[in-house]
Write a protein that binds this DNA or RNA. Structure first.
Lengths: 149, 149
DNA sequence: TCAATATTGATGCAATTGCATTCAGATGCT
DNA sequence: AGCATCTGAATGCAATTGCATCAATATTGA
């Protein structure tokens, strides 16, 4: 092992700095468009999307956590808010009495449908219109390599 | 103009979703390493770095804001914390009596020096070691295209 | 078996952030 | 000059997040 494994190249540091700045700014801009349209935060959309994907079986909170890569307490609170808002329902889990099973409600599905056109337009405006198709694919490929193992 | 300018391609949506998840997770991991080493958040590092770059002239808060792409009130509070911690000093601006000029102190410079080895190692571990040099360059180039105009 | 350990999920409290507003001073317009 | 408007910065209050911890159940292993 080389003795400078912990020293990223100059170029890598530039890429890192840019990733931090640009990604945070883009996310803030897209979130801003959703908020301006009267919608809840992206995290609500993400969670509901995962639950819609999960289908009838629903998801346990800890599964949602590993999908969304949020801290446990943030999932706990997000789930609480979504439940209060009526977008998901929680039932006790059959096979683990500590746990619950979360399922999206019709209200949650409706929210996804309503948010999507606004979200999609925001992604286009702030993200995809600035890239070629080829660049989008390159970016996706590189980000996949960066994903937590 | 095509009538679907607001509809990103499938691939673009995948790239977007990955950008949101991966960048937020990476940043959290790197921040976590800094915190674990007893250091303040990345925003402190970023601000101090900008101020060190700015040199003897210092920066006005609104300049720092446009560099860091943070909300005005967040800059105001970050500046306050950095001042209390002794890492920067604020002087009234000569040419605009509403404003201040911020300059990094020796304590701030020391913090940058101390944080860098830890920060650098975290960037290596979570970011640059997962990419080739070529990929880091590609990423930097693509992110530059996404930057706010 | 049953004690030690690990996992699931919630929560009190402190710190941070978002939002709206405020204040002071600069700038523009007539 | 005088008034309207804009810009730079701070802040009260509410919402969110982070941290530490807790309670309940599951799992492991001697």
């Amino acid at each position: 092992m080389p003795d400078d494994v912990d020293k990223p190249s100059e170029d890598a540091v530039v890429a890192w700095a840019r990733l931090v700045r640009v990604s945070q700014d883009l996310i803030a801009q897209v979130e801003g468009e959703l908020k301006a349209a009267g919608f809840p935060p992206l995290s609500w959309y993400d969670a509901l999307l995962e639950l819609r994907r999960a289908g009838a079986g629903g998801l346990r909170p800890f599964q949602l956590q590993s999908e969304m890569l949020l801290a446990q307490y943030n999932i706990s609170r997000l789930v609480h808010r979504l439940t209060v808002a009526g977008h998901i329902e929680r039932r006790p889990s059959d096979d683990d009495r500590r746990g619950q099973v979360l399922r999206i409600t019709e209200s949650g599905r409706r929210l996804l449908r309503e948010m999507w056109p606004v979200y999609r337009a925001a992604i286009a405006k702030h993200f995809s219109q600035k890239l070629s198709e080829r660049e989008a694919l390159q970016l996706a490929r590189i980000l996949a390599k960066l994903r937590k193992d």
